[in-house]
Simulated scan of single mutants.
Amino acid sequence: MDSAWWMLPLLVALVVGCLCPLTGTLLLLQRRLFLANLVSHAVLPGLALALALRLDPGFGGVVSGVAGALVAERFSRPERPGQAGDEAVLNTVLAGFLGLGVLLIPLLGLRVDLEAVLFGDLLAATGWDLLRSLGALAVLLSLLGWRYRQYVYLGVDPLGAASAGLPVRRLRLLLTLATAFTVVTAMTAVGVVLVIGLMAAPALLALGGASSMRQSLWRAAALGTALSGFGFWLAIQPGVNLPPGPLIGVLCLALLPFGAKALP
């Protein structure tokens, strides 16, 4: 098989497979994983506006995704996760931003391949997609190296972290930005709808039996990389010929029973 055409998409799949579980693990430890789902839907209005203004769609998606997360946090209580009404706020913001994005496309007269945006088109990945995914991974690793101990504290005891004077709001905003970068980067590989599975399933499995957050992070990254690589390889096999993004999403679902058993 000629490797010229599939090498670049494979590299994008591997980088995204490493990036998504790292972000997902941080969110899962803080019990904020639904934020990734919200951001993944909230990027659509920004993508539409950026296309209309002839700007980089990735930039518009990040701005819109962060805006959706900030609106949700404004009307919920992030310092007290699980409060009644918070899920209603998050779901309302998610639906509202998604609906706004869908409305903007015909209103602005745009021609957008919604199927590719929602479910990914990994085989159409470009060198720019690879550079953007590597940049997002570098940003996240830099954030972990800079604020690792504070994120450990925030994940274990958020109220204690606030009482100890940690910049909780700033830490959450930085993670929200990283989540938006991750979602926009993964859009090419698995789409904005399926990215949540790649964030959640490897992180869930990696947490079982882990002795530290660092161990959970590297386990999740290794598992996500293997999952994305295998999903892409399987999708391009003769006789299979399936879209890699949805197939990777199905493989994430297959991990769920193992992840549930791994948790204490």
Rank of each mutant, 00 (worst) to 15 (best):
W6V: 09
C20Q: 14
L22F: 12
T25I: 14
L27T: 08
R32F: 09
L33A: 15
L35F: 08
P45T: 10
P45F: 10
G46N: 06
A48L: 09
A52M: 03
A52N: 06
L53R: 09
R54H: 09
F59W: 14
G61C: 02
G61I: 01
V66F: 06
V66W: 00
L70A: 14
R74C: 04
S76Q: 05
R77K: 14
E79Y: 04
P81C: 09
G85C: 05
E87C: 04
A88S: 11
V89I: 05
T92H: 00
L94W: 10
F97K: 01
F97D: 00
L98W: 06
I105G: 03
P106A: 10
D113M: 01
E115D: 07
L118Y: 03
F119I: 06
L122E: 02
T126G: 06
G127L: 03
W128M: 04
D129N: 04
S133F: 00
A136H: 02
A136E: 01
R149M: 07
G155L: 02
L159W: 02
A161P: 05
A162H: 13
S163V: 07
A164W: 01
R169E: 13
A178C: 07
A180D: 01
A180F: 02
V183M: 07
T185I: 01
V195C: 13
L198R: 12
G208N: 15
Q215L: 12
W218H: 07
W218I: 06
A222M: 11
L227M: 08
F230A: 13
F232H: 02
F232L: 12
W233K: 05
L234R: 12
Q237M: 05
L247Y: 10
L251A: 15
L253F: 14
L253K: 11
